[in-house]
Design a protein around this nucleic acid. Structure first.
Lengths: 244, 244
DNA sequence: CGTCACCTTGAGTGGCTTCAAACGGAGTGG
DNA sequence: CCACTCCGTTTGAAGCCACTCAAGGTGACG
């Protein structure tokens, strides 16, 4: 077990979105979690799969992705450390999307039958997991709005705000700098934009002094300005105990 | 109580997406449901609200909507008879979107504390409700993809497919005709398109013999053709017992 | 008969796409 | 050590999808 074990990542996350008691935390500590590493651009789950376990993100960036009939890819959401992307699979038997690593990632796998047993015996934990999927849904809603009604520049700023905010709230940001080895092509797939246009919008954000990028690192130089540019409000992320 | 009571609508819906036993159904029958009628374009829930009850749609069409900073509206999902749009509010305390009637509608209200009590004592019912919110999330995912990566014509066909399919699966379609008094402006807000362009895409669908419209009624003249035009697969709707 | 809400049509514009090519850094093998 | 490749970023130019603006048409309703 590493200093911050996979259980810790899971528990800290659930604490940050719901109210758990000591007893609940002890139960969570006993969940068997199998760690495994993956390279970038690996499909962990594919549309049509019937998964028997869910995983918590321990490190790295994932996305839920869908492919259209003519082969275009849409990333419908990002997942950072602490998130449990395919918790939806616990009750959706057949998956309707893929879960793909967007960077190298470390994941912790948990068996569905174990999770189901816990949910039956510990309603408060069940509620915490349920709430986690509801926050995912809220993020999807925001993304529909982002892609449907905001223009490219605002859209770009918005998604950067979300990423930075979420990374910060799980302690993955040092000195306002986010380690984000995500390609511009992936950003395009998330925003419904072409790679070329993503590049131009990023340049515009840099030109206006809102962000700086050095290789895979993104830095918000002017957070208030960036949130204004991105029409970003944190309500939809439903953070409850930011301290945790 | 009307011949098809509000409980019936709720129960039939939950049966169509999950496996319930006789005992569960008896419990559901005892839920207090308060019926109420609404006109079109009424905000039932607003962003920032902390609702104390959820409602099941008994008749009519609703949408979850969000407003951007500059006042543009995005409809992020539709809700038809049987759906429980703001079940998300059961565990999200502060709402991040509005729920608006898009047509005149009849709704059945259920108190949150009653629902929470039931979920604690009947894990199978809790799972059914949870699953209902997971299907909402799956629909949001599909909408992100639809708005982000499909062009207007396909996008339009897709949303019509979804609406017709969902209405049919709850028995609200007679002779392939859907009663849909939805405005083209609302369709635009759902698709991230201007009203003008919605109008032109509908014309194109009519011209190609895929749909017919007479006033507020929409008819799929060529269902296979329409699903092909809309790149529509039913996986993401996660229907389990279509017979029910 | 006037009003209102919604649908329809036309013309001009622009945001974003596509296509194509050049550039830069990291890793590899001769 | 240098060529070579690969992957991702950057830049330019041309074109189209969808938008905006504006006006006219239609049906419902008081």
């Amino acid at each position: 077990m590493s200093p911050t074990s996979s259980s810790d990542v899971l528990i800290r996350k659930l604490q940050s979105i719901s109210d758990l008691r000591e007893g609940d935390i002890d139960v969570l500590k006993d969940i068997q979690i199998q760690e495994k590493d993956f390279l970038a651009n690996y499909d962990l789950v594919r549309e049509g799969d019937r998964p028997v376990n869910s995983f918590v993100v321990l490190d790295g960036l994932l996305g839920s992705t869908k492919l259209t009939g003519d082969g275009k890819r849409q990333i419908t959401s990002f997942f950072v450390a602490g998130d449990i992307p395919d918790l939806h699979g616990l009750h959706l038997s057949v998956m309707d999307c893929n879960f793909t690593t967007l960077t190298a990632a470390r994941l912790g796998f948990m068996r569905h039958d174990a999770l189901r047993a816990i949910c039956e015996q510990h309603p408060r934990i069940a509620t915490a997991f349920w709430r986690s999927t509801l926050i995912d849904a809220a993020i999807y809603r925001e993304w529909v709005t982002n892609v449907g009604r905001r223009e490219a520049y605002t859209r770009m700023a918005h998604i950067l705000c979300e990423l930075i905010f979420r990374l910060r709230s799980v302690g993955r940001i040092q000195d306002h700098v986010a380690d984000l080895p995500i390609t511009q092509a992936a950003l395009g797939d998330a925003l419904g934009l072409s790679t070329v246009h993503v590049n131009r919008m990023l340049q515009e954000l840099r030109r206006r002094g809102l962000i700086a990028t050095t290789g895979p690192r993104v830095q918000a130089l002017d957070w208030p300005g960036l949130t204004r540019a991105g029409d970003f409000e944190t309500t939809y992320l439903h953070q409850r105990n930011p301290a945790a």
